[in-house]
Nucleic acid binder design. Structure first.
Lengths: 345, 345
DNA sequence: TTGTACGCGTTATCAA
DNA sequence: TTGATAACGCGTACAA
């Protein structure tokens, strides 16, 4: 680590302002403003002179001052729990694309499921540093905080709706249809007894998946509550195996990571997939198609969820309105791979 | 999609300003400011009265105005090519953590390798909407644009250094050491002929990996240039297989995705890994340990790269300085898994 | 075709 | 202990 001698360059000097340009060009700040914005006609010679000074001084309008006077920043926030989770990374990509399309910037609000951190980021909307927020906290959010904010500030809920929260703009995947597709698939293969590894009870999405599955499967379903982590899938399946026999021919995990854990536990017990038992996940993260055997799973339109939520939000934000209640349910898709097969006889 | 009747609530009304509070509390804006900041003593009764009005009106200081007067926004940018790439997602997480620790916000500048998009984001620093930029474009960046910016604005280079760019603050993984570790590992296993799949020529990181590898391996190395995508790894290996024999006992791909492609090509050709041929990757993305066989690869400290670059940048930004030239090389680690073994005799 | 004056919301300076 | 004023940098209504 070296520090070169940079003289004055090591300290940022005051950048040229519109006044500096005006003075150097011998015109008023108003004229400079209009030369740059084109909002009113300017004498061509004057304009040329101004432009030349702009170049010479390297003048760039301070967007901060512009925002202050305009009353909006053209920046919104994206609140998610964990950007290193591929689901949220895809969602973020969709959100960023939508924001960029409309000339908005996107502040990454990564909360790590930490309430204080979430509060700090929600403060950005209260202090009007951001024009709106795409909210995808990934955990059962405190309804109260949100209720106080929605209606006053533009907020869109992505991925996970908040139970009992009315009047929100919502974009989610069709979780129930996903569960249903899995149920139908396993039923058609001939399965009649399944173990379902769910996510935390409080998540609406998880409940929807479970409901859809149970309805469509029409067989015996044992539910076990996990936490969406790989270890939890492993623990739950290993636990069942130790208790005695697994007593089912298929495992449906509410997300891919838990399915991975289940696969490992089954392998460790000397069971083959899908020979002895079928396994299905949910999410279709990148690794799902790469593992052995490739995992049958439900593809979630994470990118579309982020993109839709953001595009909808901005449609209202750009007009200075609080978005109305609306719901956008995005289609999911069953990816049948090699981890499912008819049950052994 | 329904639109409820929300009356006046559908349009955001003007939020309370410090003047409103001052008027309602019968004091000057100055006093309100000081009650809230604690920057000077205020009579307890007056303060209580002000606080009560603040609550009643729901006043929150406009951070925009604060920023204008302070001359900085406490927001920086993170410029990356693709947030859905787990490497950059991890890097982003590290950057966000570091920014959050120092009370800074982080704008996600996802460029998709698009020069125009990159330009637009770099404009944010010129217009001083952001106080600095962590630059990890993932592709050979146009030195010129950057040179013009650095020295005038706070920029830190992360992951990829820019060839010939002087005086920059840089944080990267130790790519050369990574290549060396792979070379030593394969050599110790007894391999003497290897195929190396490199990334695009222009990337310094790729060259470093190749150099380290060739030096330490000391055997015969055939190099083929790929583009860091899975398809490219598949194509290069399949091509060699078609041309005749592969003529090597090990494949070293410059990133995991290309290694995945290589694995698929080998499997399709009926070759076993590591029985017939060993495969090594680089990056240690999540899927690397999940695929079959688990991939021997070099773990990149993506999180630390993002965190270090950001923390270093902010150390100077917070003092209103342009960061000096400095280099932070972060250690990598060889993860030996099941895709490597001694060569078949 | 151009300029003056004001407002955006805050904080620092200076005065009382 | 408090307040009036200026300044941050810009856009624009109004005037000339």
């Amino acid at each position: 680590m070296t520090r070169e001698h940079l003289g004055d360059r090591s300290v940022v000097r005051r950048p040229a302002s519109i006044k500096d340009v005006a003075a150097a060009a011998g015109v008023s700040p108003t004229t400079v403003s209009h030369v740059l914005s084109g909002n009113r006609p300017v004498n061509e010679d004057t304009a040329a002179r101004v432009r030349s000074v702009v170049n010479r001084l390297g003048y760039v309008p301070a967007s901060l001052a512009r925002s202050l006077q305009a009353g909006s920043t053209s920046v919104i926030g994206l609140l998610i729990p964990d950007i290193s989770n591929t689901f949220f990374a895809e969602l973020a990509k969709g959100a960023e694309d939508a924001a960029h399309d409309l000339g908005y910037g996107l502040i990454l609000c990564n909360t790590e499921f930490d309430a204080d951190r979430e509060d700090r980021y929600l403060g950005m909307i209260r202090s009007r540093f951001i024009d709106g927020m795409v909210y995808a906290s990934g955990s059962p959010p405190s309804r109260r905080r949100l209720e106080a904010l929605m209606g006053k500030f533009p907020i869109a809920l992505a991925d996970e709706e908040v139970d009992g929260l009315q009047g929100a703009l919502i974009a989610t995947a069709d979780h129930e249809a996903g569960g249903r597709l899995v149920g139908e698939h396993l039923r058609e293969l001939g399965h009649r007894r399944a173990l379902m590894l769910t996510g935390p009870r409080a998540l609406k999405s998880g409940a929807d998946r479970a409901n859809g599955f149970v309805k469509a499967f029409k067989g015996k379903v044992v539910e076990r509550v996990g936490d969406f982590k790989e270890a939890s899938g492993h623990r739950l399946v290993a636990g069942r195996l130790e208790e005695g026999r697994l007593d089912c021919t298929a495992v449906f995990a509410a997300n891919d990571l838990m399915a991975f854990g289940a696969l490992t536990a089954l392998r460790e017990a000397g069971l083959s997939v899908p020979g002895d038992i079928s396994v299905v996940g949910f999410d279709d993260i990148r690794a799902a198609s790469l593992i052995h055997p490739p995992l049958t799973t439900v593809h979630q339109p994470a990118y579309d969820v982020g993109r839709t939520a953001t595009a909808q939000l901005l449609q209202y934000v750009s007009r200075g309105e609080v978005p109305p209640a609306s719901r956008h349910t995005l289609p999911v898709e069953l990816k049948v791979r090699a981890s499912t097969a008819p049950p052994a006889r």
